[in-house]
Simulated scan of single mutants.
Amino acid sequence: MEPRPETILIIEDEAPIADIVAYHLEKAGFRVRVAADGATGLARAAEDGVDLVILDLMLPELDGLDVLRRLRNVRNVPVIIVSARDAEADKVVGLELGADDYVTKPFSARELIARVRAQLRRAKAPAQEASRLQVFDLVIDLKAVAVTKKGRPVALTPREFDVLVELARHRGQVLSREQLLGRVWGYGFVGDVRTVDVTVRRLREKVEDDPGAPRIVLTRRGVGYFIPKDEGPGP
């Protein structure tokens, strides 16, 4: 039996854009669904059959950032924002809220499909591992893509989870912002390394007892971030 094609949900109110994106995705072998407003898109994105969401920001009923914010309370499905807003602040806000990638209009269909495939590969990778990582009072379940702290669930965005896993896998090793950006966001990501700083700050707010005095995710000034082998201030 052949595996089912991945289902991509396009949430886009401009029909010509939605139609051309759907055409190229279907040509590439994906199954496509389209929603023309934020409320309908959110309802469909919450369904288990959707493997990835392509999300516009300027939508009727419910804007794209609200869709993303609410969706992250329900599912960790990969989300690629596609927007005409190209300011760095817009990109940072979208990534902070849990978007996995940000593509500015106009864009090429070839680039978008490459980014879709990259995100789908990344989403599948943790499910292929059947192991856990223990970091002090954190337990990282790679198979379930879940984190608990002292037995209590910690709600992380996909980016926060991936950064935590990358640091945990290289415990005691300082990873530069550029390394984290390439390994987590992908080496084709076009953005500022400060995106990493924003994600680490949000991660600390969720996993540290005192985010202002972190004991788990530490900074090596001028170099990058690391998780120490022994809990406490790093060298």
Rank of each mutant, 00 (worst) to 15 (best):
R70Q: 14
R70I: 01
L71W: 00
L71Y: 00
R72I: 07
R75V: 04
N76E: 11
N76Q: 12
N76M: 14
P78R: 03
P78T: 06
V79S: 09
V79C: 07
I80L: 11
I80W: 11
I80F: 10
V82W: 12
S83I: 01
A84T: 07
R85A: 13
R85E: 09
R85K: 12
A87D: 15
A87V: 02
A87P: 01
E88M: 10
A89Q: 14
K91E: 12
V92Y: 13
V93D: 12
G94K: 02
L95D: 01
L95T: 04
L95H: 05
E96H: 10
G98K: 00
G98S: 03
A99S: 09
D100V: 07
D101K: 08
Y102I: 01
V103C: 07
V103L: 13
K105A: 07
K105H: 08
K105R: 12
F107T: 06
S108Q: 11
S108A: 10
S108G: 14
A109C: 11
R110G: 06
L112K: 08
I113H: 05
R115H: 05
R115D: 05
R115T: 06
V116E: 03
V116Q: 02
R117F: 03
A118H: 07
Q119K: 13
Q119A: 13
L120D: 09
R121Y: 08
R121D: 15
R121E: 15
R122S: 12
K124I: 11
A125F: 14
E129Q: 14
E129L: 13
E129V: 13
A130K: 15
L133C: 06
L133Y: 08
Q134N: 09
F136W: 02
F136A: 12
D137C: 03
L138V: 04
V139H: 05
V139N: 08
V139I: 13
L142E: 11
V145L: 06
V145Q: 06
V145T: 05
V145F: 12
A146D: 03
V147P: 01
V147S: 01
K149W: 06
K150D: 15
K150S: 15
G151E: 11
P153S: 05
P153C: 07
V154T: 06
V154N: 08
T157F: 09
P158N: 10
R159S: 09
D162F: 02
V163R: 00
L164D: 01
V165F: 01
E166S: 14
L167R: 00
R169T: 03
R171L: 02
G172Y: 02
L175W: 05
L175V: 07
L175E: 02
S176W: 08
R177K: 13
R177C: 04
Q179I: 11
L180G: 02
L180V: 07
L181V: 00
G182L: 03
G182A: 15
V184I: 09
V184F: 03
Y187D: 11
Y187G: 06
G188R: 10
G188N: 08
V190Y: 06
G191Q: 02
G191R: 01
G191A: 02
D192N: 15
D192Y: 14
T195S: 10
V196E: 01
V196S: 02
D197N: 15
V198D: 09
V200H: 00
R201V: 14
R202A: 10
L203G: 01
L203K: 01
E205D: 14
K206A: 02
V207D: 00
D209R: 13
D210L: 12
